[in-house]
């Protein structure tokens, strides 16, 4: 039961983006199309799950004093691996995401989960927490990406829905990210108020 909860809570209840509001930098920057959002989510999911796994596995041999530098080494290793792999196998996506792949290193979600969860919990729970948080991140990022792409470019996952000239370009520009994320947060808050 508690394993399920570890996985489950990151999706909506403690959604990293829309509830905890961490890791917003890549969310705002690369959510201008659904495909970019999905690519970014995949990279973050890989790094988050792997780093949670390793941090949980080594938590007993890591002295308290140097845990943060060690977390950073682990995280940056996985970020660099995903960076190389994307560059090699999905060069177009890599070009679209640009500097935001290396910047996953400083994404608060990953260091936050390592410090707050993986360092204190067994491997399996930590992996599930990583997967759940990744899924929550993916849900948030992809919904923002889909909304922005539909309204701002008239397409979804690159498939044209209506004449792009009629689409509101502002939605795929930075202001569109803020407007969309604001409305999604408001919607989630409203939903929670109703449930309570």
């Amino acid at each position: 039961m508690s394993l399920w909860k570890n996985f489950n809570q990151g999706i909506l209840k403690e959604n990293p983006v829309l509830r905890l509001m961490i890791g917003l930098c890549p969310v705002l920057a690369v959510s201008n199309s659904a495909i970019n959002a999905l690519g970014m989510s995949a990279a973050v999911a890989f790094v988050l799950t792997c780093s949670n796994l390793v941090v949980a596995a080594i938590r007993r041999i890591v002295p308290d004093e140097i845990r943060i530098p060690i977390f950073i080494i682990i995280i940056s290793t996985f970020v660099t691996i995903s960076d190389y792999v994307m560059q090699a196998f999905t060069p177009d996506l890599y070009k679209a995401l640009g500097v935001f792949v290396p910047l996953i290193v400083v994404n608060c979600i990953i260091l936050g989960r390592a410090e707050a969860f993986a360092y204190r919990n067994p491997v399996l729970n930590s992996v599930l927490d990583g997967l759940g948080m990744s899924l929550g991140f993916t849900v948030a990022l992809v919904s923002i990406g889909v909304i922005r792409e539909v309204l701002g470019a008239g397409s979804v996952f690159g498939i044209t829905l209506f004449n792009p000239a009629a689409a509101a370009t502002i939605m795929i520009l930075p202001p569109g990210a803020f407007i969309t994320i604001g409305f999604l947060m408001a919607f989630l808050n409203k939903l929670e108020n109703k449930v309570q």
């Binding site: 502002i170 939605m171 520009l173 202001p175």
Partner: peptide, 9 residues
């Protein structure tokens, strides 16, 4: 400003 960024043409 919103309209100019949305439908510049």
């Amino acid at each position: 400003a919103f309209l100019l960024a949305s439908w510049p043409v």
